[in-house]
């Protein structure tokens, strides 16, 4: 589905990414973890077409997509959920769904999505700025689901949420995966991400350093070492 080979790039100053190689197979749930400042979010931005400078190869189903705008990527079935409060405060919940319906080529109806996110139904007319953080994150996921994406790029969906709500978020991600959506997830909460993902990559200083099945990496002492900042003499690219 998605393949990055030797991707480098940044915001115009020093390079943040210095060699990212990873792949996400069709229907696969892949997590990207790593210490603060490793460049995890920047990887998603590079794929999503919002990073000012990108070098290297990014291919979607074999087709090069680097330099495409978010809009063009949406047409190819890529949906990006940036980090933070991803709602438009003055638009209502329903308007968020309608907004995506108008943009995505294979969008579902808001009604179909509300079946899967019943918690949003009583909030349809409420402005998103008045929702709780958890409700906002659910709305983001519902909006993404409405686009019926083939690839979902999610940046730190659990940030700042209560543990119970985090479970809701991961349940929603699992549901999307169950429907055949490929997912590339960036998470600070490595334990939770590795538990949910099929496979994961560990990023350090702008490079992918380790790769493995989620649960294997959970046990891997090198992962802990990376998080503590010690350099790893690992072989994995």
């Amino acid at each position: 589905m998605l393949e990055l080979r030797g991707v480098a790039g940044g915001y115009g100053g020093p390079q943040v990414l210095r060699g990212v190689t990873l792949r996400v197979a069709a229907g696969e749930f892949v997590a990207l973890i790593g210490p603060n400042g490793a460049g995890k979010s920047t990887v998603l931005k590079a794929v999503a077409g919002v990073l000012p400078r990108v070098e290297g190869e990014i291919a979607l189903e074999g087709r090069p997509v680097q330099g495409l705008s978010p809009r063009a990527l949406l047409a190819l079935g890529v949906v990006y959920l940036p980090q933070g409060r991803n709602v438009f405060p003055s638009l209502t919940v329903l308007e968020h769904l309608e907004l995506m319906r108008d943009l995505a080529p294979h969008a579902l109806s808001p009604e179909a999505v509300l079946e899967r996110f019943p918690a949003l139904r009583p909030l349809l007319g409420r402005r998103a700025g008045l929702l709780s953080g958890g409700q906002q994150q659910l709305l983001c996921l519902a909006r993404a689901a409405l686009a019926s994406p083939r690839l979902l790029l999610v940046d730190e969906p659990s940030l700042g949420l209560a543990p119970r709500v985090v479970e809701d978020v991961f349940a929603a991600l699992a549901d999307l995966r169950g429907r055949g959506v490929s997912i590339l997830l960036v998470e600070q909460n490595a334990r939770r991400a590795l538990a949910a993902a099929d496979r994961a990559y560990v990023l350090e200083l702008g490079r992918t350093r380790l790769e493995g099945r989620g649960r294997e990496l959970l046990e891997d002492p090198r992962v802990a070492q990376l998080y503590l900042g010690a350099p790893v003499s690992a072989s994995a690219p």
Partner: peptide
Amino acid sequence: ALGRQIRATADNFDLAVAMGVP
């Protein structure tokens, strides 16, 4: 639909771009 896109852009320009709003 145009009005929603205008309000979304006014609310949060960067998010609107990232979401594919024209």
